[in-house]
Design a binder for these strands. Structure first.
Length: 575
DNA sequence: GCCGTTTTCGGCCCGACTGTTTTCAGTCG
């Protein structure tokens, strides 16, 4: 039973308690505990065995006991009892838009419905509309919600949602009654996947904004349309919400709609203790009801006694305490990046010539770039032999002579085989400027085997970077099981850098792990792993993920000037 | 069920929209 399993059961308990009609605070307690566990980098089994469950914020005596039983026996009596009262199928019903715990319970009590299929059947027979509080429209909305659910099942990648959101913002911006506009929600926080797009605008003519928004060409249907708030579904099945406020409310509203929910709850709690109330319209004195601020986000945070917090940090993971203490991290920015040190050329499975890549990198303002083509053992990717690399180095040398102000480095992405060995012996490896080692096969090995493989690559004195360390592919493949603590420790000790692979469906290491590794002294390389010039732009998503992991420029080696980078690589044995 | 520089009890964020009502409950974010 791992962290995800435990978090999942706690979430389900929360949902079942909600259906049973228990206190919403109890429900929230279970949800918060699940959220906390999902953010852990350490195996919850270890934390349990060290007797430290209750040191996790959000986990107290009661939930710690539940977790202990789960980990000891693999079962939980409390959970099983709940399942008897609340059929597990009912939990699916809550994920339907406009169906919550109350309606799920109503359908179960009155019609015996326990699955989405049964619900759909009841809708087709018009059985729902006669229930108390229901009617034909509510029934139809649930039918649409079920269709929607089947389409929206998976969250979409940030890289798909982001350009769409920017496009909508641009279209709305063209109207002069839109005074200010911004994305909000998880997209503004740059989460790796997005459930829906939130957009916030300031206007004195909100109904005009609503009309334009609901009539955008990309809109396929309208879920709700009000005076200040509308929701639509776009062609790719993604929901977009627009909220409009008055210009003087924009800052408070942007803060509010950016979230996260947990961040806002914590913030309001602080406001309350100061005798203030924060809502989407501003900051108010509780006693007098007088508005004391809210035109800008900065003003909201300052009134609560803290510095402005960057959206990528707003997950209630200590950023509020840091802001109160004035010790927020000075997070890395895209403009700090001086080079991309994991790029593939047409020598292996990339599309572009080295010269083309170098020219594009120079245009981006980079000072260096590493061509890291696959090595021979990875045959499927056109891996290079030692002789191929020697010929490639001649081409690299030529490009270096032709281009000013940019250095092309001799790189390689070597494969870590099932025994932890990498392509090539030490004698040849040391001729590279930079060596990235990655796992490309044997994902189904045990935690011990996989950890051992990566550790032996880390202890190889010529391996500088571990590529995409956990191997996950968002929506397709879970991370392989690893003892990350061991890996972080070894990386920090040996001066081996861990990659933050910027490919939008990888973003590997992920945010929580970056932060954990940083605290253990690890340094990182934010790389794109680009296989074409166009993919060099993925650096944007990598940097955003780095920000979410609290990384500062000095934690990221490809923010360093060329000479300093080379010195660090030489320290490990290359260059 | 959790939590504490108002602490071991009594709080726990707050408002918009919808569809049903005729003043509000449920849902959502």
């Amino acid at each position: 039973m791992d962290n995800q399993d435990v978090a999942h059961i706690l979430d389900e308990i929360g949902e079942m308690l909600e259906i049973k009609g228990e206190s919403s605070f109890k429900v929230r307690a279970y949800n918060r505990a699940a959220y906390a566990i999902r953010g852990l980098s350490e195996d919850i089994n270890n934390i349990y065995h060290e007797g430290k469950l209750q040191t996790i914020p959000g986990i107290g005596k009661g939930i710690a006991e539940r977790i202990a039983e789960l980990l000891e026996t693999g079962k939980l009596t409390y959970y099983e009892e709940l399942c008897e009262h609340v059929p597990p199928g009912l939990l699916q019903l809550i994920s339907i838009q406009s169906v919550g715990p109350k309606k799920a319970k109503l359908f179960y009590d009155k019609l015996g419905i326990t699955t989405i299929e049964e619900l759909l059947e009841a809708i087709n027979k018009h059985k729902l509309r006669d229930l108390a509080g229901m009617g034909p429209k509510a029934e139809e909305n649930i039918r649409l919600g079920i269709l929607e659910l089947q389409r929206l099942r998976e969250r979409i990648l940030l890289s798909e949602a982001y350009p769409l959101a920017e496009n909508i913002v641009q279209q709305l911006k063209e109207h002069n009654f839109i005074l200010e506009i911004s994305t909000a929600g998880s997209l503004r926080r740059m989460k790796e996947t997005i459930g829906d797009i939130d957009i916030l605008a300031a206007s004195n003519e909100s109904s005009k904004a609503m009309d334009v928004f609901c009539n955008l060409p990309k809109v396929t249907h309208i879920l709700a349309k009000g005076e200040t708030k509308s929701s639509v579904v776009t062609q790719i099945g993604l929901q977009v919400d627009l909220r409009v406020v008055l210009p003087e409310q924009f800052g408070a509203a942007l803060q509010y709609f950016t979230g996260s929910k947990e961040h806002n709850i914590h913030l309001r709690d602080i406001a309350k203790k100061k005798g203030l109330k924060v809502n989407e319209y501003g900051v108010f004195e509780v006693k007098t009801g007088e508005k004391v601020g809210g035109v800008t986000e900065k003003e909201v945070y300052n009134l609560l006694g803290m510095e402005w917090i960057h959206p990528t940090l707003r997950e209630n993971k200590g950023e509020i305490e840091a802001a109160l203490a004035g010790v927020l991290p000075n997070i890395v920015e895209l403009s700090n990046i001086k080079g991309d040190i994991h790029v593939h050329s047409n020598w292996s499975d990339g599309f572009n010539k080295i010269k083309e890549i170098a020219n594009d990198a120079k245009k981006k303002g980079y000072r260096y770039i590493a061509i890291s083509d696959h090595a021979e053992k990875l045959k499927v990717a056109g891996g290079l032999t030692a002789d191929d690399y020697r010929r490639q180095w001649k081409e690299i040398e030529k490009v270096n002579q032709e281009i000013d102000g940019l250095k092309v480095l001799r790189g390689a992405e070597v494969n870590i085989d099932n025994n932890g060995k990498v392509d090539f012996d030490d004698g040849f490896l040391k001729e590279f400027d930079i060596v990235t080692a990655s796992i490309h096969s044997g994902f189904t090995q045990s935690n011990e085997q996989l950890t051992k493989r990566i550790l032996s690559a880390i202890y190889n004195e010529h391996v500088n970077i571990i590529g995409h360390p956990t191997g996950r592919i968002l929506g397709k493949r879970p991370p392989y099981p690893l003892d990350l603590k061991e890996i972080f420790k070894a990386a920090a000790e040996t001066g081996t850098f861990l990659e933050l692979n910027s490919f939008p469906d990888r973003l590997d290491l992920k945010d929580d792990y970056l932060r954990e590794a940083k605290e253990m002294g690890v340094k990182f390389a934010i790389n794109t792993d680009a296989h074409s010039i166009g993919q060099l732009r993925y650096m944007f998503y990598g940097v955003a993920t780095a920000q979410r992991g609290w990384l500062e420029a000095e934690d990221v080696i490809n923010t360093y000037p060329f000479e300093k980078l080379m010195k660090m690589l030489r320290n490990k044995g290359n260059g």
